[in-house]
Design a protein around this nucleic acid. Sequence first.
DNA 1: AAGTGCTGCAACCGCGTCATT
DNA 2: AAATGACGCGGTTGCAGCACT
Length: 241
Amino acid sequence: MESKRVKPQLKKNLWKPEEDLILKNYVETHGEGNWATVSERSGLMRGGKSCRLRWKNYLRPNIKRGEMSKEEEDLIIRMHKLLGNRWSLIAGRLPGRTDNEVKNYWNTHLNKKCLLGKRKATNSNNHEEEDNEENMNKKNKLGPPFHSEPHGSSLISLTSTTKLGLEEGSRKEESTVTEGNRMDYYTSSFNWDKMDYPIMPEAAVGGAGNSASFVFDDEPLIAYMDSFILLEAFGCGGEEL
DNA sequence: AAGTGCTGCAACCGCGTCATT
DNA sequence: AAATGACGCGGTTGCAGCACT
């Protein structure tokens, strides 16, 4: 009778410097990918996912560590307005930053900041509504922090499934966009990488002709359609609309 | 100095998507 | 067309370090 091959117990919790070194050496020698085999071949008793995460978030070259700059912070806020919790896409606009880092930064710093701004801007009887919105956003995984239909208008809605093609590094990333994911529609109509402005254009974060002011959730829809978004989504500064 | 609570971050988990067979 | 495995993403958890009492 053939005995079942016993899976080795995988290590969890924090990575040690020597483990980092092993993984780094392995990936530099063999290249990225085939994470499932990395643990076997490298001798690391870690799951493929764990190895991939560690490489992607910490060991990869050009990873930027340390405090977020004001520009990065602005960009995260604005991108979050545009995309919602699409951390990998947001991180893709921030060179050297990872989705995990952006996500953590949002949850620990910016989320509070925005909520605070919101609270200041809204009067006290809106609190229940805010909570509901938060819950709604939580439930809708793909949903950006969208609010109830502004002024009863109906926004662009999709009648068919659309593909949004976004390059992330060398990998072609495609997300299915279904009816209701409205901001995906905005982003699906253009290709980030064909855009000819720098990744963090000064203009987009406060340069001439573009507002750098924060936009909080309680602002009307037009706030989402500010010049930055329009520039990105439609290739114009908004003047033509 | 010790205990407690809070915060921030690293890492894990579950699920969806895609490629391959 | 269906099954399977690999990969990527977003949500969540666990823990170390810090502040406060």
